[in-house]
Design a protein around this nucleic acid. Structure first.
Lengths: 222, 222, 222, 222
DNA sequence: CATGAATGAGATTTCATTCAT
DNA sequence: TATGAATGAAATCTCATTCAT
């Protein structure tokens, strides 16, 4: 008869009468990741996260303290996920150029598959990394990757496939940059250039381009 | 010691007793750019913008309709600034390699000098370019840039300085990516790698690296 | 380049460089009538009236004092318009039933042709006729109409066409009611009954219905 | 984000410590009906409604979305009230003429007793029924009324009490018109005719007049 | 006579968080 | 553990009116 209440959370009930804390926690974290990566930290709404999670709003505060605590949990959870992905690259089995190609494409594919990771980095940088700086475990995260690059560069320089004196961090930043920027800025880039940069074949082409840029740079000048 | 006190009402008023619409408009746009790039669109406060501009809050609505209209004006104004700056590069006077080097370093330096540009693009991409898409003039604004790159590539290919068949848009995205990602993500990158990426000499080194990457890629395989 | 200013009044200039006070005043009155009858007194916007009139907002205050003064002017102007319409009915030439029919249809047609008159009456009644009560000339306005009805009723009763002892004011209210309510409430009525009451043939049918109702009532019981 | 909250308004709180949603909702609806019918939609103040209802302003948004949602709820609630009242009339127990008389007088009395109903319809029609049109249930709400009239007309025609071929919607509009117009326009009518149309005996006389008009119309011509 | 920029007051709406159950 | 109604603070936006030119 009268207008229905907006944002009813009635349906949430059935799900959570189970009273499974871990499941509730996980649902909140998943919902928060989606909301925050979609809208940014200031843009994300606590109400929206609760609704997405099918959980009472009060639970967010119960499990995560406040909005910022929730954000920090999302950040650490997302960073933790990347760790496993790097295992199994086994670049040592390949010659330096093939190893580098594999590394570059892995990085590129990772960005394609994990937009929420890109989005969180963007948000965190808008925040001047203020949360990341407080995290102990984050700092060591990229060490294995840099180590792998160092080995590759050394082997490549030894056999004259790569130029010498390449800074591995500088190189890693470039590898990441060529993929990250394309993905994270594809909406404005698509608009200003009038081309759909998100199309699957376009993404594949970009992958090849990145490989060529990196290998072209590494090639020693004769 | 302490930050300067906010301007008194009297001072704020004096500014606009001139009744110079262009000046008022420009002041609002400048203030909005600062506030929005510092805090993002959702984080920016209309009150703060008005105070920064030294105008009555009501004026923002008078000139720009609403917060979104103001944001769009900031976005277009900011894009126009870099594209206009590029037009003055006169790359035709230089040989292709020197021209490309100039373009790359200009772009890099522009990103260093205009953090608000980076910040705005980040914000707009979080928004899936929804505002930019409503802009009529944005496509035409970028035509000259693509044209410039096309001419450089053509000249370079003709005299065998550059490889052939290079996509100018793909290349520009890479030029931008190598600088943009470094700057926009320097807070997390500095944290992860334990290195201050914002130091002036570090920035200069990055510039040279970008040039090498781009020119290395463009060099034709013999 | 930047967003255009909303509600620009630039085009107003050309029109009013003529500096013709009467014309300006008339334009404002016309615009105010349209805006106020469309949106009501509280819903009408001073800005909108100025824009509609192609006149600077300041002029409204110059000519009419304030918004209420403008409303009063609109009200009196609209009431004044009705006076002339009643002339020329010449009901005396017709037999009572034909005269009554003519009067009823005239009233009905007047409401169809002057929605702004209905609208203003509605607005004024929401206001408990507070403005109308201050107007000296309004009270005598309907006197001629009531006089005409009296004559018709008397003639009709004398020749047994009409029942006797009919209150002319009561009858006039009914004649007006049957048309006024239909017109002023046609939007909700169309919605609740699922029928387009504004269609021309539907209006014609309503006219005939009103005639039948009034004449049916007036017919003496045998 | 966690802005400190100073002293609470203790007395405002006490009312709703009951945490009775239905009561809160009803209180808001009642207050909104009073405020909106008194001042119109644009004239009504959200603050005033909240205060009248004795609830926090935020609750209006919690239950009704926004001011328009609240208005729509008021509108539907108010329409439902009269239609529900009509259902209890039991006209089938009476002979056609008595049934019609009962319906006419009920309608007239309802208008006298519920000025907020009239006021709301006036407001909604100024708005071209734009809110009512969004209501899903409004059509079905009126079906019983039309059905009741149809039955009366059919029975009356069968026993020759009423003329045949009367359109029930047209008739209902006339029944409503004769009362609605008198009540909603009584302020200007009183002013114009110099007679207090709101006096109780005057209202009773009007009721009888309306009955006579409607039954006079319905009487079959011999 | 005419312009339209500028204003203060106040309106609606949003938001993270807490409270009674 | 869980609910969702309730809240204070502050955000965005609107409006009739005035002021300098």
């Amino acid at each position: 008869m009268e207008g229905s209440r907006p944002k009813s959370q009635v349906n949430a009930r059935a799900v959570n009468l189970t009273r499974d804390p871990e499941r509730t926690r996980a649902a909140i974290l998943r919902a928060a990741t989606a909301e925050i990566t979609a809208k940014g930290l200031t843009g994300a709404r606590v109400d929206a996260i609760a609704e997405r999670a099918g959980v009472n709003k009060r639970m967010l505060y119960h499990y995560f303290g406040d909005k910022q605590g929730l954000y920090l949990a999302v950040l650490e959870h997302t960073y933790a996920a990347i760790r496993n992905a790097e295992i199994g690259l086994n670049l040592d089995e390949l010659d330096p150029a093939a190893g580098m190609r594999k590394l570059v494409l892995f990085t590129w594919q990772y960005f394609i598959d994990h937009p929420e990771f890109l989005s969180l980095l963007v948000t965190e940088n808008m925040n001047r990394a203020s949360y990341l700086k407080t995290s102990k475990q984050i700092r060591t995260l990229h060490a294995p990757l840099v180590g792998m690059i160092k080995v590759l560069l050394k082997r490549g320089a030894a056999e004259k496939t790569f130029r010498s004196s390449v800074d591995p961090i500088e190189l890693y930043i470039s590898i990441a940059a060529l993929g990250f920027f394309y993905m994270s800025n594809r909406h404005t880039l698509s608009t200003i250039f009038g081309e759909n940069l998100s199309a699957p074949d376009r993404l594949a082409r970009r992958g090849e381009h990145i490989v060529e840029v990196i290998l072209g740079y590494l090639k020693p000048s004769e």
